[in-house]
């Protein structure tokens, strides 16, 4: 829309766009496939949550797994202990319990969290929008710094990728992994006076991985009748290829957060030429 279009036209266009979006939003609710009714007792079982706790094993061995007054959530299913590398086809195959909650059972909250981070990064980019000059770090980096950061960048990148690829096995996940990658990029900026990042690539990467998250969620909606439901086999607990879609989602989140925070670092550390009005 050009600059000389009257304000009334702009307002009417915006209003109609918002109306269309709202109508689409509520229409999507009515047309959505009815989710399979989930019996909470059949989902997060106490046994599963306790699978790593030593005390649970001890009390199981001594014969009184359930403390006084506690009842098993599923009395119809006999308790079978879960062992690493053996138990297969669990409800949620992630060895890291935190991940199984953050990405699987509460995946929708994580989507909101990613959106919040996206908005924050967009705000930072807007604030520092302008013609780009070079780094604000004026001092010329020494040879050790400029070579060392480049060597360290490869290792840091590898470690960040390791953190989010192994999110379902070890502590960590998409957010810390992305932050580690962004700190590697920060090192590149500090070590090299004229380093310039590929802005278009960062934006494209971020948007594509954000879309991948939603697409994985929609795949769950259309195949298992619930948004962000696990539609892949969970495999053997403790394997790299296990836990179904958790690894996919964490790879998407890690790439998104890494690109986003790198863009934040980039837009802050590069001096911009603009009028502060």
């Amino acid at each position: 829309m050009r600059n000389d279009t009257p304000i009334l036209v702009k307002k009417i266009t915006a209003l109609s766009l918002i109306t269309i979006l709202m109508v689409g939003f509520f229409w999507a609710f009515t047309e959505m496939p009815k989710g399979s009714s989930v019996n909470v007792n059949n989902r997060v079982s106490r046994l599963y949550i306790l699978k790593n706790v030593k005390a649970a094993t001890k009390s199981l061995n001594s014969g009184n797994f359930f403390a006084k007054g506690m009842k098993p959530l599923r009395s119809d299913v006999p308790y079978s202990p879960i062992t690493f590398g053996k138990s297969a086809n669990l409800e949620d195959g992630a060895a890291n319990v935190v991940t199984s909650i953050v990405v699987d059972y509460r995946g929708f909250d994580t989507l909101g969290e990613v959106t919040v981070l996206f908005l924050a990064a967009t705000g930072v980019a807007m604030l520092f929008f302008g013609k780009r000059k070079k780094n604000i770090i004026k001092a010329q980096a020494s040879l050790i710094m400029s070579v060392g950061t480049r060597i360290a960048y490869a290792v840091i990148l590898l470690f960040g990728i390791y953190i989010f690829v192994h999110g379902h096995l070890t502590p960590g996940g998409g957010f810390p992994g992305g932050a580690v990658i962004a700190s590697g990029v920060l090192g590149l900026f500090l070590g090299n006076d004229h380093y310039e990042s590929n802005h278009l690539g960062l934006k494209l990467f971020e948007s594509l991985s954000g879309m991948a998250f939603v697409i994985i969620g929609l795949t769950g909606l259309f195949s298992v009748n619930s948004f962000l439901a696990n539609f892949l086999p969970t495999g053997v607990i403790g394997d790299l290829y296990s836990a179904g879609f958790i690894a996919l989602i964490y790879i998407a989140i890690g790439m998104k957060v890494g690109a986003e925070l790198s863009a934040v670092v980039d837009s802050m550390i590069v001096d911009t030429e603009e009028e502060w009005s």
């Binding site: 935190v98 991940t99 604000i136 502590p171 960590g172 932050a179 580690v180 700190s183 934040v264």
Partner: peptide
């Protein structure tokens, strides 16, 4: 450990650097 890793990467690493950069910009 999950929260610890996140706190170390974001709180101690990135946000400190970003604060220092922001301080430098403000002073400039």
């Amino acid at each position: 450990p999950d929260v610890a890793i996140t706190e170390a990467a974001i709180g101690a690493g990135l946000s400190t650097a970003i604060f220092v950069i922001a301080l430098k910009k403000v002073k400039k």
